[in-house]
Simulated assay, not measured.
Amino acid sequence: MSALPESTSIIVPSHPSTLSRYARAFALAICVGACAVMLCVPAHASLLPPAGPWPAPVPASTNPLIGSPYAVNGANATSDAVLRVWFLLGRRQSTISRPAGFTALLEGSLQGLPADRPINGAELTIVVQDEASPAWHAIAYTRTDTRGYFHIRLPAGSSRRVAVLYWPAVNAPAPVYSARVLELTTTRVWIAAHTKGRTVTFVGKITGGGPLPSPGLIVAIQVHNELGAWVTAVLTHATGAGRFHARYRFEPGVYAVRALVPEQTAWPYYAGTSNLRRIQPH
C-alpha cells in the first residue's frame, strides 16, 4: 500500500451541534465510510497463517531429552497426561492483546492421569506459529514445579499462536500437546498536541515494532465527537524512523483526540491507538 500524501484531510463537521441529528449521523456515516476505504483495514486473520489442524506435526528436535542424560521427563512421567496452558493478564485468558515490544506471561499445568498427579521437574517446549514461520517452531523452554505448574515470560514478538509440548520420554513417538492460545500484538504509538489559536499541531511516534516498511505507515488523527464515535480529522504518515506530524484547524472548543495506526500491508501488527489528549483550540 502506498502512503497517502501528508495531511490529506477528510471533512469532519467542526460544530456537530449546528447540525440536525440526522445530518450529523449522515456526515458521520460519510466520514466513517471514507476512512474505511482510504485506510484499507484488513481482517485480523490476514496477519496469521491459517490455523490448520491441531495437533500439528512438530520436529523431533523439539524433544528436550535428545542429547540429555535423561530417559524420562520429570517425576511421574507418563504419556497419559493433561497439559493446560493460558495467558495471565489480570486473569487467565486464552487470547490476549499486547502492544508491540511488550512481553506476555504464559502459565499452565501438567498432570498425569487418571489421578491428576503433578508431573514435576518436566521440561516443556514452547512452540509458536506466526506470520514469519507458518510451521510450528520452538522459541523457549520451561520446567514444571513440584505442583506440576509452570510459568514463563515470552519474548516480545509479532502476533502468534502459542502452544506447549511435553515429551514424556526420549524415545516417545509424539509429544503431549496443550491447546493453542493466541497472542495478538498491536501497534504501539504515542502522540502530543500543541495548540496555537485554532490550529493544533500533532507530533508522535510509532515505537516497539522495529523498522517501518517503506514508504512508511498511514496514521489517522481522530476526534471523539458528541455521538460517541471516533472520526478522522486528518491523515498523515510515519517515516521510516516512526515519527509523524500533522496540523488541523478546529473550531473553538474542547476535544479529545488520539492517533490510530490501522493494519497495513507489510506491517505484522494489529491496529493500535495512542494515549488520549485533550485540546482546547480558541
Rank of each mutant, 00 (worst) to 15 (best):
I191T: 04
I191R: 04
I191E: 01
I191N: 02
A192K: 12
A193G: 05
A193T: 12
A193C: 11
H194E: 15
G197Q: 09
G197I: 09
G197A: 09
G197M: 07
G197D: 12
R198Q: 15
T199A: 04
T199M: 06
V200F: 02
V200K: 03
V200S: 05
V200C: 04
T201C: 09
T201G: 12
F202T: 08
F202P: 03
F202A: 07
F202N: 11
F202I: 12
V203N: 14
V203A: 14
G204F: 00
G204R: 02
G204A: 03
G204Y: 00
G204D: 01
K205M: 13
K205F: 03
K205G: 06
I206R: 11
I206W: 11
I206C: 13
T207A: 12
T207R: 10
T207K: 05
G208P: 14
G208Q: 11
G208R: 03
G208W: 06
G208N: 06
G208A: 09
G209R: 04
G209S: 15
G210A: 01
G210H: 03
G210K: 00
P211C: 07
P211D: 14
P211R: 09
L212P: 10
P213H: 08
S214Q: 14
P215I: 06
P215G: 14
G216V: 12
G216T: 12
G216C: 08
L217F: 08
I218N: 13
I218Y: 02
V219I: 13
V219P: 00
V219A: 05
A220D: 00
A220M: 01
A220V: 02
A220W: 00
Q222R: 06
Q222N: 02
H224A: 04
H224S: 05
H224F: 15
H224T: 02
H224M: 04
E226F: 04
E226I: 10
E226K: 03
E226D: 14
L227K: 04
G228A: 11
G228V: 06
W230Q: 00
W230D: 00
W230V: 01
V231N: 05
V231H: 04
V231R: 06
T232Y: 05
T232M: 05
T232E: 11
A233K: 10
A233V: 08
A233C: 08
A233F: 01
A233L: 06
V234R: 07
V234Q: 04
V234D: 00
